[in-house]
Amino acid sequence: MEILGTVIGVVVKSLIFIVGMFLAAAYLTLIERKFAGHVQQRPGPLHVGFHGLLQPIADALKVLTKEDIVPANVDRVLFYLASLLAFVPAIMILAVIPFGEPFTLFGIEIKPYITDLNVGLILALAFGSISIYGVIFAGWASNSKYPMIGGLRKAAVLIGYEVALGFAMVGPLMMAGSFSLREIVAAQDGFFGAFIWYQPIAFIVILFAILAETGRTPFDVQEAEAELVSGYNTEYSGMKFGLFPLAEWYIGTFVLSAIAVILFFGGWKGPQIFGFLSPFIWFFLKVAMMFMFFLWVHWTLPRYRVDQITEIAWKVMLPLSLLNIFITAIIILIKG
């Protein structure tokens, strides 16, 4: 009976998380378009609803009712699999992200996370790596030159930045002494307990790695519009196409921002000024700030060349993260 209750609880929570993430991703597109518009001194979506508030719904209807064209010479299995492989792992990272401490509402204890694994961060990293297969499969299965180049570029970039990202996360892990995201948050006490004050190098490395992993400028070589005609998703159409930017630009960025917030900014911690909702409000405020920062960078910078990107990854970011591990280890040894 208890198992049944747990299963039902987890299923309901997963549904809430997935549907919530879908809606959030839809409205993140609106935020991005508004932001991009105002950076370029134009208002962005304006006419569907009040200041374009219903635009994501119109977009979703449009993309769902579009004709789904599959080119004749594609590898069908991989072609269909690719868009799912890009999307599903990105949303599965949500399973280990805690949105707050457990609290009781109407006598029921509610845990605002799906699972609290003791290897949560590794799981998140692993799913992040799997979602790259989506891009590479899309590039390969499309049987076309631009997607091919785009997929290979993404592979080249990602190999470098996954390594740097993994090593950069070691710093906060060593300070917290746990892989569980909840315990990492618990290890950060107060304003000056946040790991950003102790791990600035790791934070910068992770910023670059998230930019590279989610394919935002200055590292958006895999879908360089000017040279690759949108890169790996050139041959896609309809919702199969829609899943790629949704997964990469919105869900991916949101989830990785959440992980960065948990690692460096103390997750949901903050002054208790909003009552029992304050953990959520602080968490989403921080994640939104991170997301806006990535948008800001995206709509500012031009694109690097592939060789420059991999050069930064292997020659700058990897040594920096290793140096960070070294320094952290020595300090921990000295302090005990």
Partner: peptide
Amino acid sequence: GLKVTFKNLLRKT
């Protein structure tokens, strides 16, 4: 560059 875009963000469309 970030400074420039932020300035533009606050300007009127």
